[in-house]
Design a protein around this nucleic acid. Structure first.
Length: 207
DNA sequence: AGATGGATCGTCT
DNA sequence: GACGATCCATCTG
């Protein structure tokens, strides 16, 4: 799969939905980490009040959003780190935030890095970053599948059902606050802020 | 289970 | 100097 083409040839909202069930991998000095993507959010750039590139805002820190589809964008938030994949061709600063990963490889290290066990290891955008041992923005601006980060060409698992909801943490920005731009694998326990009663512990929401 | 407030720090104004 | 695309502990019921 041409990864750049994948992230440049479809609508951002459709890509955010399609990314569920693909794997995300990080080959770090500490070891190899990988997980299934179970939760994403779409950010539509200049028109989107919740986007870091709203109204054409362009700074040194958010420059990766302006680069080719498939560029990694790491940003800090309240002393934590989050990661986007830059979406669309260079110059169109859309992004998709990866909010939750179901661990596949490197779980022992992830638990160690987080000082937590269970779903809390990676059920949030800054939690999985910490679990993967990512402590700074050194790799922001690098390109997916060329350096340390890899996105699987195909879905490794298929969601039984995908739910959409408003994005987390977007306040006082109507109409963007209430738009359904968050995509989750229904029932997967690694989805952030998921109540216990909505967890499907048999299938984790996969076919 | 849901709501609330504090911690904490890089980034931009 | 103010502000988060967050997390966590600590309530309340």
């Amino acid at each position: 799969m041409d990864i750049q083409k994948y992230f440049e040839s479809a609508e951002t909202m459709d890509l955010a939905r399609d990314m569920l069930g693909h794997t995300f991998t990080y080959e770090s000095n500490q070891g190899k980490f990988s997980g299934l993507i179970v939760e994403t959010e779409a950010y539509l750039g200049p028109i989107d009040m919740a986007s870091h590139s709203y109204n054409g805002r362009h700074t040194k820190a958010n420059d990766p959003l302006y680069q080719a589809g498939g560029t990694i964008y790491i940003y800090s938030i309240h002393s934590w780190l989050d990661m986007d994949i830059s979406i669309q061709k260079a110059g169109t600063p859309n992004g998709i935030l990866i909010r939750g990963l179901q661990p596949l490889e490197g779980l022992d290290l992830m638990e160690k890095n987080r000082s937590k066990t269970g779903f809390d290891v990676s059920n949030g955008p800054a939690k999985w970053m910490a679990a993967f041992g990512i402590k700074d923005k050194a790799l922001s601006g690098t390109f997916l599948n060329k350096n340390n980060f890899y996105f699987s060409a195909k879905k490794v698992q298929t969601p039984q059902e995908i739910l959409t909801t408003p994005r987390i943490g977007v306040k006082n920005k109507e109409p963007w606050t209430s738009k359904n731009m968050r995509f989750i694998v229904k029932g997967n326990p690694y989805v952030s802020k998921l109540p216990k009663r909505e967890m499907n512990l048999d299938t984790y929401g996969w076919l």
